[in-house]
Design a protein around this nucleic acid. Structure first.
Length: 415
RNA sequence: GCGGGUGUAGCUCAGUUGGUUAGAGCGCCGGUUUGUGGUACCGGAGGUCGGGGGUUCAAGUCCCCUUACUCGCCCCA
C-alpha cells in the first residue's frame, strides 16, 4: 500500500461549506470597498526578504523566526510574504502619484508558527490600504468599512469589540519609549524574561505582554496618551469624534501596540470574545513612516488586515437551497447516446447548470440526482434511444413528460 | 522552542481487568423478478490497529522511543 501524501504542516484545504464561507467573506469585502472607490490589486506572494526586515522589523517574531525564506539559486534572499501591507507599500512607493491611492487585496500569507485553532502556517487575509494622505477622516473611513463588513457578515455587536489607541508620531514614540524604559528599568528583575530582553530593543512591545507579573508592573507605567504632542492628541480626538458621531462603539486601550514596527498614530483592533486565544480578527493602523523605510519617498498611509479563517469561525451561513433551482442531471444508459446530442448542445449554449451521468442502472441515476439535489432529470435510456425520445422529469413535483428528441426545445420546458 | 491529548475501514468512532478468525454507523458496490428518487431489508468489497522496540504463553489493549495530527503557552490575523 502506498503511503498517502499528507498536507504540509499548518496548511489546509478549503472546500465545500467552508469554501462558501470563504467566498462569501471576500465578496462582501470587495463589494463594500468598491462603494468607497477602492481598487483591487494582486501582488506577488514571493518578495525580497529585505522588504519585511525593513518594514515589519528585524526584532519582531514574524521576521526573526517565522518567515519562510530561502536563498534563491545563490542570488537573492526571497521569502513567502508574512503579510501584505509591506507589499502594497512597496507598490505605492513606486506608483503613487497624488491624492489617495485606495487599494484592496486578499490572498495567502505565510508564517512558520506552531499551528493551532485559528492559526495556520498558510492562512488568508483581506487587506485594505489608503495611501497618500494623513487625515482623521481617512482613518475613520477604514474603521467604518471594517464595521460595515462585520455587519454584512452577520457578526453581532455582542461578539466583538473595537479597541483603539494612538501611538503618536515617531517623535512622540521616541520620547515615550524613553520614559517607559526609565520606569520599567526600576522593575527590571521582576519583569518576565522576554520583557527584559525587549527593554533595550523595543520597550513599547512590553505593553503587549500577557504575563501577569508584567501586567502588574504596567498598571502604574507611564501612558502613551500622556506623552502625545498636542498635534497628535488633536488628531486622535478627531478620529474618536468621527467614530462617536457615527455611533461606532469603541474602547480606548492605552496598552494596544501593534506587533509590527511601522505603526504610528491611530492603531486599532477588532477582537472577538468567542475565542480567548486567537481573539484578534482584524487589526491595523496608520503607518506614516512605512514607505520611507523602503524608498526615498515619504508617503503616509493607513490600513488593516483581517484573517479570513478567523472570520470564518465567527459566521454561519444559512442553507441557501436556492443555490440553483434548475440544476439538470443529463442521464443516459449508454455513453454512445451522448454523441452529437442536440439537447446536450442546447444545455451548453444556454449555460444550464448541469451534470452528465452514465449508468446502465436507471435507479442509480435517479438516486444520484436525488442525493445531489438536482431539480430535473433528462433521461435517455435504451428504449428512448430506440424511439428517438427523451424523458424530462421534474424531481420536485414528480411530473414526467416524454419528447421527440428532434423537436425538443429545452428553453421552452425549463425557463 | 516548551507542555497536554489523540492516531483502529474512504469518513466518524467502539473495542470492557491483555485472551480465538478486530467491530459499528455513514459512504461505496451489488441485490430485494421487467426501466424511476432521501425509506426498509439482504449481501459484498475495504484494516501491515501510525512506525519501531520491549514485557508476556498471549498486545489494538501494558512500558519505552519515534512520527503525524490536534489543543494550549509564546506571538500574531
Amino acid at each position: 500500500m502506498k503511503r498517502n501524501i499528507s498536507l504540509v504542516k499548518g496548511t489546509h484545504d478549503i472546500h465545500g461549506a467552508e469554501m462558501e464561507k470563504f467566498e462569501f467573506i471576500i465578496e462582501k469585502f470587495y463589494s463594500i470597498c468598491r462603494n468607497f472607490n477602492f481598487k483591487s490589486i494582486q501582488t506577488p506572494i514571493l518578495e525580497q526578504q529585505d522588504l519585511f526586515s525593513r518594514t515589519v522589523g528585524e526584532q519582531t517574531d514574524i521576521v526573526s523566526k517565522e518567515m519562510y525564506s530561502f536563498l534563491d539559486k545563490g542570488e537573492a534572499y526571497i521569502c513567502l510574504r508574512p503579510e501584505a501591507t509591506s507589499s502594497l507599500a512597496r507598490f505605492a512607493a513606486s506608483n503613487y502619484q497624488s491624492g489617495l491611492l485606495k487599494l484592496i487585496t486578499h490572498g495567502p500569507m505565510f508564517r512558520r508558527e506552531r499551528p493551532q485553532k485559528g492559526r495556520y502556517r498558510q492562512f488568508h487575509q483581506i487587506n485594505i490600504e489608503s495611501i497618500g494622505e494623513k487625515s482623521p477622516y481617512v482613518d475613520f473611513e477604514l474603521i467604518l468599512i471594517a464595521k460595515l463588513l462585520f455587519d454584512d457578515l452577520g457578526i453581532k455587536e455582542n461578539k466583538h469589540r473595537l479597541l483603539i489607541n494612538s501611538l503618536g508620531s515617531k517623535e512622540d514614540q521616541i520620547k515615550y519609549a524613553y520614559e517607559l524604559k526609565k520606569y520599567l528599568t526600576e522593575f527590571k528583575i521582576q519583569l518576565s524574561e522576554i520583557s527584559q530582553s525587549r527593554l533595550d530593543k523595543n520597550p513599547l512591545r512590553i505593553l503587549d505582554s500577557k504575563d501577569p507579573k508584567d501586567s502588574e508592573i504596567l498598571v502604574n507605567a507611564p501612558k502613551i496618551s500622556e506623552h502625545l504632542s498636542e498635534e497628535s492628541k488633536n488628531y486622535f480626538n478627531q478620529v474618536k469624534k468621527l467614530l462617536n458621531d457615527n455611533k461606532i462603539k469603541f474602547f480606548e486601550d492605552p496598552k494596544l501596540v501593534r506587533g509590527l514596527d511601522y505603526y504610528s498614530h491611530t492603531a486599532f483592533e477588532f477582537q472577538t470574545n468567542e475565542d480567548k486565544r486567537q481573539n484578534a480578527i482584524l487589526a491595523g493602523g496608520r503607518y506614516d513612516n512605512l514607505i520611507s523605510m523602503i524608498s526615498s519617498r515619504d508617503i503616509p498611509g493607513v490600513g488593516w488586515a483581517a484573517g479570513i479563517e478567523r472570520l470564518m469561525d465567527l459566521i454561519s451561513l444559512k442553507d441557501e437551497k436556492s443555490e440553483s433551482d434548475k440544476k439538470i442531471l443529463f442521464a443516459v444508459q449508454d455513453e454512445s447516446y451522448l454523441n452529437n446530442n442536440r439537447i446536450l448542445k442546447q444545455i451548453y449554449s444556454l449555460r444550464y447548470n448541469h451534470e452528465v451521468r452514465v449508468s446502465k442502472n436507471i435507479k442509480k441515476l435517479f438516486s444520484y440526482a436525488d442525493k445531489n439535489n438536482f431539480s430535473f432529470i433528462l433521461l435517455i435510456g435504451e428504449e428512448e434511444f430506440k424511439n428517438k425520445k427523451i424523458i424530462l422529469k421534474d424531481l420536485k413535483n414528480k411530473n414526467q413528460k416524454s419528447f421527440e428528441i428532434s423537436k425538443f426545445e429545452l428553453k421552452n420546458e425549463i425557463r
